[in-house]
Computed example of a mutant assay.
Amino acid sequence: MNKKFAVVIAFAVLVTVVAITFSSYYFTVLEMQQYRPSVSEQTLDINLKNGSPVLGSENAPVTIIEFGDYQCEACYHWFHNTRADIIDNYIETGKAKLVFVDLPFLGSDSIVAAQATYCAEDQGKYWDYHNTLYNFQEEIDNGWASKDRLVAFAFNLDMNLDEFSDCLDTAKYNKRVKANYDEAVKQGAQGTPTFIIIAPDGSTTKIAGPQPYSAFVKVMSPLTSAVQIEQP
């Protein structure tokens, strides 16, 4: 009886180990598929008029489009682990420019936070405000991006608070944020962050997830190595 019981226990343990191993392998494969860059030789019709101001030179030959949510933890990790290297090596050298397009889907505060960045743009501080949101990100809809906190961020950036508050209260940029959301969905962004790299010839590469800097170098280095960069 004890021997049979031991056999049953051993079999159960074996099944559990196999299940865990298969599960780990399966989700690893899913992650690899999710983060593998996909290349399209077709020129995409991407509407960026509602997106952020361009970060970098308007004449940069390569365009990086980031679809993001200010409450997205993966976006937070990309912002803190990858973005600075891209700015140093591609944006500031004139090789590429960056445009942020809102994809606010994680919570109600995501929409208001996105609107707030354009209220900041009215005072010439879009990117300062954008950076502030990712520096102070907390849990989704826990109050970190409430109106009071958004106004406090504006105060820290020496903005006109009456103008900023009025912009938020009237939802001045609600349609703009909604248009960005629709554009992100149209371009097939199924999560955040999602990136589309537009080459000088118009061909595109899509990168999903908070990829490391090396993944962007692999895509962008061939695009910029043979291009004459215009110096400001």
Rank of each mutant, 00 (worst) to 15 (best):
V13S: 09
L14H: 05
V15I: 15
T16L: 14
V17L: 15
V17W: 11
V17T: 14
A19Q: 05
I20A: 06
T21Y: 11
T21Q: 09
T21L: 13
F22I: 14
F22T: 10
F22G: 12
S23E: 08
S23Q: 10
F27A: 01
L30A: 10
L30W: 12
M32Y: 09
M32V: 09
Q34K: 15
R36C: 04
R36I: 05
S38K: 04
S38A: 06
S38N: 03
V39G: 12
S40A: 13
S40P: 10
E41R: 09
Q42V: 09
L44E: 11
D45L: 08
D45Y: 04
L48D: 12
L48W: 12
K49A: 10
N50L: 03
N50V: 01
N50G: 02
G51K: 02
S52L: 01
P53I: 06
L55A: 11
L55E: 14
E58N: 12
E58G: 03
P61L: 04
T63C: 03
I64V: 12
I64C: 05
I64L: 13
E66N: 04
F67D: 08
F67W: 05
F67S: 15
G68T: 05
Y70I: 02
Y70K: 01
Y70Q: 04
E73D: 09
C75H: 05
C75W: 07
C75A: 06
Y76H: 15
Y76K: 15
H77V: 11
H77E: 13
H80L: 14
H80D: 15
N81T: 14
N81A: 13
N81M: 13
T82E: 11
R83G: 00
R83T: 00
R83E: 12
I86P: 03
I87K: 13
D88E: 14
N89V: 00
I91S: 11
E92G: 04
E92F: 07
E92A: 01
T93M: 05
T93L: 05
G94P: 07
K95P: 01
K95G: 02
V99F: 00
V99P: 01
F100Y: 13
V101Q: 10
V101A: 05
D102S: 10
P104M: 03
P104T: 02
P104G: 03
L106M: 06
L106S: 03
S108L: 05
D109M: 06
A113I: 02
A113Y: 04
Q115S: 08
A116N: 09
T117Y: 03
T117P: 02
Y118T: 00
C119P: 11
D122N: 11
D122F: 00
Q123S: 06
Q123E: 10
K125Q: 14
K125M: 08
Y126M: 02
Y126H: 09
D128C: 00
D128R: 01
H130V: 00
